[in-house]
Amino acid sequence: MTTRFLSAFLLMFSVDLMAAEVWIGRPSSSYYFGQNLGQVMASQQNAARSKGEAQARIAQARQAFFAAKPNTPENEAAGRNFADALFGKDIFYLSLYVAEGVNEKSARRVHGLDLFTGGPLDGGIPSDGWFAFATWVDGVRASLGAPTNGQLLIVSSPDKLLQALRDNQKLYEKYRIKRDRQELNHGKSQDEADRWAEYARAKEEAAKARAPDGGAPLHKSEIKPFAPEVQFAKSYYLASSELRTLLAQSASSGQRMLHCSYGPLVTWEGKRGFDEYIFWYEQRPLTFMDIVRADNKKILMFVSNDAIRECPPTDKSAKEQRMASRLDAN
Results as ranks from 00 to 15, higher is better:
Lys105Asn: 00
Pro212Thr: 14
Glu269Cys: 01
Ser127Asp: 11
Asp159Arg: 06
Asp295Leu: 07
Leu96Ser: 01
Gly34Ala: 11
Ala211Lys: 02
Gln169Asp: 14
Lys208Trp: 12
Ala20Val: 02
Ala197Gln: 08
Gln190Trp: 05
Val266Asp: 07
Leu94Arg: 01
Ala324Cys: 02
Ser157Tyr: 11
Gln35Leu: 13
Ala61His: 07
Phe302Gly: 03
Tyr262Lys: 03
Cys311Ile: 05
Asp306Asn: 15
Gly263Met: 08
Phe82Leu: 12
Leu184Ser: 07
Lys271Val: 01
Arg284Ser: 07
Asn81Pro: 00
Gly52Asn: 10
Ser29Leu: 05
Lys234Ile: 03
Pro126Trp: 06
Leu286Phe: 06
Arg309Asn: 09
Gln231Ala: 11
Asp138Met: 09
His219Gly: 06
Asn46His: 10
Arg108Cys: 01
Leu184Asn: 10
Cys260Phe: 12
Ser221Gly: 04
Glu198Leu: 02
Arg326Tyr: 07
Lys208Ser: 14
Phe116Glu: 04
His186Leu: 15
Phe131Pro: 00
Gly273Met: 01
Val98Trp: 08
Ala77Ser: 14
Glu100Leu: 03
Pro228Leu: 15
Pro212Cys: 15
Gly273Gln: 03
Ile91Asn: 08
Arg284Met: 04
Ala47Cys: 04
Phe302Ala: 10
Lys319Gly: 12
Ser157Arg: 12
Val303Cys: 09
Ala206Glu: 10
Gln169Gly: 08
Phe133His: 06
Arg284Leu: 06
Asn168Tyr: 05
His186Thr: 06
Asp167Asn: 14
Gly123Phe: 13
Gln249Asn: 08
Asp159Thr: 05
Lys188Asn: 14
Phe232Pro: 00
Leu115His: 01
Asn185Lys: 03
Ala251Gln: 13
Ala20Ile: 03
Leu165Cys: 05
Trp280Asn: 10
Ser30Gly: 04
Ser95Asp: 02
Pro73Ile: 06
Gly129Arg: 02
Ala248Cys: 02
Leu115Pro: 00
Gly263Asn: 05
Ser156Ile: 05
Ala47Gly: 04
Ser235Asp: 15
Tyr175Gly: 02
Met289Phe: 07
Trp268Thr: 09
Leu184Asp: 11
Glu100Cys: 01
Asp180Trp: 07
Met18Gly: 14
Leu94Met: 09
Ala47Ser: 14
Ile223Leu: 09
Tyr172Trp: 15
Glu183Lys: 00
Phe274Ala: 02
Arg141Val: 07
Asn168Glu: 12
Gln255Leu: 15
Asp295Gly: 04
His111Tyr: 00
Gly150Trp: 10
Cys260Ser: 13
Asp90Met: 05
Tyr281Gly: 03
Gln249Val: 05
Lys319Asn: 13
Tyr277Leu: 03
Cys260Thr: 11
Ala307Lys: 01
Ala164Tyr: 10
Leu11Asp: 13
Val140Glu: 14
Lys174Leu: 14
Pro285His: 11
Ala77Lys: 14
Asn46Pro: 00
Leu246His: 04
Gln321Glu: 09
Ser157Ile: 01
Ser106Leu: 00
Ala142Thr: 15
Ile91Gln: 10
Lys160Met: 12
Phe133Tyr: 12
Ala19Asn: 10
Leu11Ile: 02
Gly263Leu: 05
Arg62His: 13
Thr2His: 08
Asp191His: 11
